[in-house]
Amino acid sequence: METGASAPDRYPLPTSDEARATLAEAARIRTSATALSATPWPTWFATTLTAYVAFFPVAYGGLFADDRWLLPKAAWAAALLSTTAAYLALFALAARSWRQRTGVALRFDVLPKRATVPLAIGMPALLMGPAWAFRATGQAGWLAFGAVAAAAVSVGFHLAFVRLHGKTTA
């Protein structure tokens, strides 16, 4: 293949064993680099994230309730918007600090798909589903369930990544 580089070294084609060893070395580098990408969020941001996902179903439920529930709808909307804005600002700060600490790009596609795919599908359902169940049944217990379940998922994933990072860097 033409590389455009100035006179690259020419290597004889590797033997099967040499090619296997080279692939194994690339796999080893990939594993150690994945450990860097799986570095967990700092505890302060994991706590922020947990608080946000616990608050979201309650505020969303208040916003979409048929009637006024605890607070005027405008107050729920303002609370939801302000907490979301604060969360996004803190996420930007945490992401910047995470990148500086790890020295690698923040990306989620290197994390195990068995964790990220259920999270991507399940978390929106967990955040918004209880509000609709509350609207349909009038039972505020749905919102409490949503808050507790979302917080538990957040803590669970944080601990899972702490474990994954520890295992891959051990």
Binding site: E25, A26, I29, R30, A33, S37, V104, A105, R107, V110
Partner: peptide
């Protein structure tokens, strides 16, 4: 290999 995995 490292850049491919980490992105940057």
């Amino acid at each position: 290999a490292l850049l491919d995995t980490t992105g940057e």
